[in-house]
Every structure is written in structure tokens, then in C-alpha cells.
């Protein structure tokens, strides 16, 4: 990165991971580092800054994607993807620097923990991954009509896609919706499409596990048949009235939850440490 030019500009991209990879491509061809990077919709025009909007080009982003995998390592790809999902403000610039160095140094980059942006990428990845893991347990589905299950979540990081993929593997014969209320995104999964077209969910080698990007880039069957899941804007979603059966299961769960705790060992601080209050809204039992 030593011979790179630092330009006093703000780069804008469309907010998707592909868009970001196109931006990485752009920076590489010109060997420039921007002052700041923003998704277009989050940027407020400011007369002190000149901006360049970078167009998303799927061919370019695929080249960067493959390049990271082939020339650096799968871990680097994985780290950048999850760091990108995190809610940190300066994530893009840190990931960009991390990738630049990565292309220069190879897989060694992942062990350079004392470099600030490497550590920041790794900690962003950790934040996103651990929240994703936590929510794998804390999502509560309810059946809103025959074999359609709904769940709402309020995550800090944008982890709806890996989260949804976890549930596709787990409950492949249920249609489900996961609603990220903080971003108003809905993850819709349609099991009838999945049954006709099995390939996207048998892992493409161990490599692309959990990585949505793979489906967009590598899997041709996916492009022909359409995805079994999609992520759409969920602001118009209205929750139908719950059936009695559903209410009964909620009651059963609540009763189980309350009885299983040992009164003599009550420890609300410990409970809160593991299950912060920000998640309580979506839980039946709290």
C-alpha cells in the first residue's frame, strides 16, 4: 500500500457487498485510497467534499471475489464478508486497507493483529459472527398460516442473510420469513422452490459455506431458477392474527421457561449478560 495515492475524495457505492467489491476494483486500478467511503443512501452532500459514485459491476466484483479467494485466502474472504455485515461506521475503509495489504502480503495478513485496521476488521467480523450465532438461538418463529413461519429480530449487524441460510439447512420444509425490524428487511424462504431445485443448498465445496455471494456468482442453476430465498423491503408487512394453537405453544414455552429456572440460584445479572435487553422485545419468554 506504500505507493498508493491518498486522494481527498469520498467514494460512494450502492451499499451491497458486490458494490463494495467493485469499489475495491476501482481503487486497485487507480491505486488510490479515498478519504471516506459511504453507501450512497447514507451520504449527505457536503460542499467540502468531492464525491465519486462507483457503479456496481458484477464482472469486476466477481474478479475481486475470486482474487481474494485464490491469492489471499478463504479466511480473508470470510473475514471481509462478515466485517462488511457489521454496523461499524468506518468498516469499508478498514476492509479496503485490509484487502490492499492482503494482496501484497498474502495469507500472512490474517496474523498481523497489531496492525490497527487488520484488528478492526477481525473484531468487526467477530461482532457480526457472534451476533449471528446468538440470534440462531434467539429467533422465535410463529406459524402465521399453514406452514408459513414468521419471526422478527432487532439485530445490530446486518446478518439476516447468513442467519436465514442457517434456517434453510435446519428447517428446509417450512416456509419462513425473518423480519429485521432495524433495517426493515425481510428474508423470505420458499420451500417449494427449494425442493424443485436442490443444488444451491448443497454446499459448493466447503469454500462458500454461509456465503451468499457464492450463489450470485458461481451457481448457474440459481440464476436459471431464481433463488429459494430473497431479501425484500419489509416496511409494508402486517402480522396477521395468531391462531389459538400458536398461542398455546407460546404458553407452553413460557411455562417451561419459568419452571426450568432454579429459584435458589436466581441470578438476573448473569442472565442479562448472556441475553442483553435489546433482544427481549422479540422473545416470547421475557
Amino acid at each position: 500500500m506504500s505507493n498508493w495515492k491518498l486522494v481527498n475524495k469520498v467514494f460512494l457505492y450502492d451499499g451491497t457487498f458486490e458494490g463494495f467489491l467493485s469499489l475495491v476494483f476501482y481503487c486497485f486500478t487507480l491505486k488510490t485510497l479515498p478519504q471516506k467511503i459511504y453507501p450512497i443512501e447514507k451520504y449527505y452532500t457536503n460542499f467540502l467534499e468531492t464525491t465519486i459514485a462507483i457503479e456496481t459491476d458484477y464482472n469486476k466484483s466477481k474478479r475481486v471475489f475470486d482474487g481474494i479467494y485464490n491469492n489471499i485466502s478463504f479466511d480473508t474472504l470470510y473475514n471481509s464478508f462478515y466485517a462488511f455485515l457489521s454496523d461499524q461506521k468506518d468498516k469499508e475503509l478498514n476492509i479496503l486497507k485490509y484487502l490492499c495489504d492482503g494482496f501484497e502480503l498474502g495469507p500472512k495478513i490474517n496474523s498481523m493483529l497489531t496492525v490497527p485496521y487488520v484488528f478492526s476488521v477481525l473484531s468487526m467480523k467477530k461482532r457480526a459472527c457472534s451476533e449471528c450465532h446468538k440470534l440462531k438461538g434467539l429467533v422465535r418463529f410463529m406459524e402465521i398460516s399453514n406452514n408459513i413461519y414468521y419471526s422478527s429480530i432487532h439485530p445490530d449487524n446486518n446478518i439476516i442473510e447468513p442467519l436465514g441460510q442457517h434456517f434453510i439447512k435446519r428447517i428446509p420444509n417450512q416456509n419462513f420469513i425473518i423480519h429485521d425490524k432495524n433495517r426493515n428487511l425481510c428474508f423470505l424462504y420458499n420451500c417449494s422452490i427449494n425442493q424443485n431445485n436442490h443444488s444451491p443448498y448443497q454446499n459448493n465445496g466447503a469454500v462458500y459455506q454461509n456465503n451468499a455471494v457464492a450463489y450470485r456468482n458461481n451457481d448457474t442453476s440459481y440464476q436459471n431458477n431464481g433463488p429459494a430465498y430473497q431479501i425484500i423491503d419489509g416496511s409494508n408487512f402486517k402480522l396477521p392474527k395468531l391462531s389459538d394453537k400458536e398461542k398455546y405453544y407460546k404458553l407452553l414455552w413460557k411455562v417451561f421457561f419459568e419452571t426450568i429456572a432454579i429459584k435458589e440460584r436466581k441470578n438476573p445479572r448473569c442472565q442479562m449478560q448472556f441475553m442483553p435487553k435489546k433482544y427481549w422485545d422479540d422473545l416470547i419468554e421475557m
Partner: peptide, 25 residues
Amino acid sequence: NTKNGIGNANNSGICHTWGADGRCI
């Protein structure tokens, strides 16, 4: 998971909630 099956196990385990005594459920 198997074809037409439901569920899988996760090597690291997944906690679904924590009781009032702080133990994971």
C-alpha cells in the same frame, strides 16, 4: 439434516435462551 428431515446439530452448540438463574436453556 436428511432429505425431508427436520433439524441438524451444530458442533459448537446453540443456546436458545437463559433462565432466571442465568443457566442456558
